[in-house]
Design a protein around this nucleic acid. Sequence first.
DNA 1: GTCTATAATTCGATAGAC
DNA 2: GTCTATCGAATTATAGAC
Lengths: 193, 193
Amino acid sequence: MTAPAQPTSPRRSDATRAAILRSARERFAADGYERATIRAIAADAQIDPSMVMRYYGSKEGLFAAAAEFDLRLPDLSAVPPEQLGETLVRHFLTRWEGDETLVALLRAASTNPGAAERMRGIFTDQLTAAVATFGTDPTTTARRAGLVASQILGLAYTRYVVRLPPMVDTTPQDLVSWVAPTLQRYLTGTPES
Amino acid sequence: MTAPAQPTSPRRSDATRAAILRSARERFAADGYERATIRAIAADAQIDPSMVMRYYGSKEGLFAAAAEFDLRLPDLSAVPPEQLGETLVRHFLTRWEGDETLVALLRAASTNPGAAERMRGIFTDQLTAAVATFGTDPTTTARRAGLVASQILGLAYTRYVVRLPPMVDTTPQDLVSWVAPTLQRYLTGTPES
DNA sequence: GTCTATAATTCGATAGAC
DNA sequence: GTCTATCGAATTATAGAC
């Protein structure tokens, strides 16, 4: 994959593929899966619509490529136990403030079954794995991860998708201080606490 | 509106209108705004597609009628202050377990600007008004309502839309005990608490 | 590799017979 | 009030010229 040993092939137009993916993420994030059209994506990337089909086969294939997403969760076992909540909120806010892929996935997962499946996979695999790295009762791991996902995705949904005014106007710092204790309890606490 | 003084008009086929609305809510809830077609809704209601247009004018008009939604929030000023969180979570869970209108709105708001506007209106007006009924600093009311909305909608999104396994499998009782303290703090607490 | 032309569907909406 | 027939527009996807 990353072995350009020959100076003869600087990849003719890999730039085109990258441009398509950028435009696709923008459109999918802004309009959702069905309203984002291949024609519009191609126009944004200033290429011909048929190129999209040639490179990615179908609209589903394009989405699958554009919605590849890694939460890039930090190693939670290296975090002081009482800072887990704060670490997580801060990570998520910075992670998706600069990358609209998650917003695209969030919007698409509302109506597209394949996107919903991918969303389940990401949060089930990546988040559950991260939660499992520090020592709580293994039988509660999945539930703790689910609760964290509910608050994290609710934050993203209200701030980036529906754009509720109070959630849009609040600074990342304030959001962190309000939401961190919630995640902290979901991760390490008990219901009644 | 509600003055059927004449026994002569039992409304010929108001039943048809009601059947259309029921099917519309089902389809909008299951498929979102753009995938839910007038043809499919009419088929579900076992009527002709043109009837939908005749009664509701357009697809947007149909959605507007089908997505009419009242959160039916209880009078929070009559609730013991320390039970506010629990009261709210329990209310929301029962409210939308038996009514798919909110799920329809949740899905549609992801891609349809009009539905998003309605969602903003519902949570800005109804929820903010309810939060304002008990005595906290008025300048924090909007933010508290926004935070509550983020957790409540995140709960609905993960449980009913994306259907994350741990969120689907958890009983309403357990969800209440986990989420109630979160809302309690958003409503009456401080960030650091 | 890039683009034109178009096939094949599908949808919202309209007109008009009965 | 209800239904048939259809229009016009938009979409994904394909075939093939250059």
